[in-house]
């Protein structure tokens, strides 16, 4: 395919960064105003004392809210809406939760190992009632390690698009189209990293994150099916329809 010009890369970076900021759910200014307020001990205990199914439902609702912003992000990415509808659905079904985990580092307080959740900053212990401590720990570890790269908003935007436009997803009908889009997005990501004078290893570190994201998402699916085996009615009647559609 014809070489991508510098101007085209700049244009792609601009479009994807703008799409990211328009759909990022929490603006940086909002985050700063929140002054990283964490849950008080009695609030933590009230989450811990929730029945398992109630905490699962709350988390499913929060994940679904975040995913809807990711869908809007995807719709604004140059070229995504030109893909066939099947592939748009395949990419979002497989990648939306991965982008949610990437975006999580924007609302993560590394010093206190806490993530913005349900109004305040929550440590892993808030999620104890889920019965998924191993997965929660891995998700927090991932957020902390992504935070340590101190990505800028445009770097995060490009990395999110790169994760979403994965040409190796199964069930893609026009794999080549997605490959072209992903390659251009990767070039744009490299372009941004160079423009921001990032050291060389950052792109490779980001590539390694992709494998971790895949693992986190498959473990989420495993935990969900284990939960649903015990509480089939709760999932059917109380979980958000979009969540069930994506992960059911």
């Amino acid at each position: 395919s014809p070489p991508v010009s510098m101007a085209e890369l700049d244009h792609l970076v601009q479009i994807i960064s703008k799409s990211h900021l328009e759909t990022c759910q929490y603006l940086r200014e909002e985050l700063q105003q929140m002054s990283w307020q964490s849950f008080l001990q009695d609030e933590v205990e009230s989450y811990q004392n929730k029945p398992r199914e109630a905490m699962w439902q709350l988390c499913a609702v929060k994940i679904t809210e975040a995913i809807q912003y990711v869908v809007e992000f995807a719709k604004r990415i140059d070229g995504f809406m030109d893909l066939c509808q099947n592939d748009q659905i395949v990419l979002l079904k497989a990648g939306s939760l991965e982008v949610v985990f990437v975006r999580m580092c924007r609302v993560f307080d590394s010093q206190n190992n806490a993530v913005y959740f349900d109004g305040k900053f929550a440590g892993p212990d808030v999620f104890r009632a889920l019965g998924c401590d191993d997965l929660i720990t891995s998700v927090f570890d991932f957020a902390k390690s992504l935070c340590s790269l101190h990505l800028t908003e445009d770097e995060l935007a490009l990395f999110s698009a790169f994760v979403l436009l994965s040409a190796d997803r199964s069930w893609l009908q026009e794999k080549l189209q997605v490959e072209k889009l992903q390659q251009k997005t990767q070039l744009a990501l490299q372009h941004v990293l160079q423009k921001n004078h990032r050291e060389d290893g950052v792109l490779n570190k980001l590539r390694c994150k992709v494998a971790v994201l895949r693992s986190l998402c498959s473990r989420h699916t495993e935990k969900l099916s284990a939960f649903r085996a015990v509480y089939p009615d709760i999932v059917r009647t109380h979980f958000p329809p979009l969540y069930k559609e994506l992960f059911g």
Binding site: Q68, V71, Q85, I89, L92, K93, L242, E245, L246
Partner: peptide
């Protein structure tokens, strides 16, 4: 597409 009606609808909606 049939199995993903909600996602399909979200994709059809104008970018809100």
């Amino acid at each position: 597409k049939e199995k993903h009606k909600i996602l399909h609808q979200l994709l059809q909606n104008s970018t809100s």
